[in-house]
């Protein structure tokens, strides 16, 4: 299994239009909805939003990883988006987020998918991955950036 199994090329948007937290989450959800991966987008948005209320997923370093677990998710998937000017995401470091990973996980999910997501989460912690993502100007380059093996242990 590779990153492409959970992040489809069509779910990568290098030029997000939204300017606020709520709408960017909805924009990313629509990418997954278009691929037929989510049955009920309202329901899924609700799950993500509830999760966001516990504490923000704006983890700083310009990254946000809104995520939700819901029965309206058909299979685990990720949508990626970039916003050149940045969006306020209540980040831990107070700075706007530029890179967005929306993670959708079904209520009962396949372990392999979850492992991929955990690997993806780990990768975001590496500076070189973040740099490559920031520089990526095609969907293919985003996938390449996320395919690099960087695990420390």
């Amino acid at each position: 299994m590779r990153i492409r199994d959970i992040l489809n090329k069509d779910c990568i948007d290098l030029n997000l239009k939204s300017t606020d937290k709520e709408s960017v989450i909805k924009e990313l959800i629509s990418l997954l909805v278009n691929r037929g991966l989510i049955a009920d987008k309202e329901e899924f948005f609700h799950a993500v939003w509830e999760r966001e209320k516990t504490y923000t997923t704006g983890i700083g370093m310009g990254i946000a990883i809104p995520h939700g677990k819901s029965k309206s998710v058909k299979r685990a998937a990720v949508a990626f988006g970039k916003s050149e000017r940045g969006i306020d995401f209540d980040s831990l470091d107070g700075k706007p987020a530029h890179l967005f990973f929306l993670i959708a996980v079904p209520e009962e999910s396949h372990d392999l998918h979850l492992e991929l997501i955990s690997t993806l989460s780990r990768k975001l912690m590496h500076e070189e991955v973040r740099r490559a993502l920031n520089e990526a100007d095609t969907q293919e380059k985003v996938l390449e950036a996320l395919s690099v093996d960087v695990r420390v242990n």
Partner: peptide, 27 residues
């Protein structure tokens, strides 16, 4: 973390990276 989807792993990875930089063994 509550959902155990992302933060758990990011925190783990970040600790590993930081430990490596500091020359400290970590698990």
């Amino acid at each position: 973390c509550p959902t155990g989807i992302a933060h758990t792993y990011m925190a783990a990875e970040n600790l590993s990276i930081a430990a490596k930089e500091l020359g400290i063994d970590i698990k």
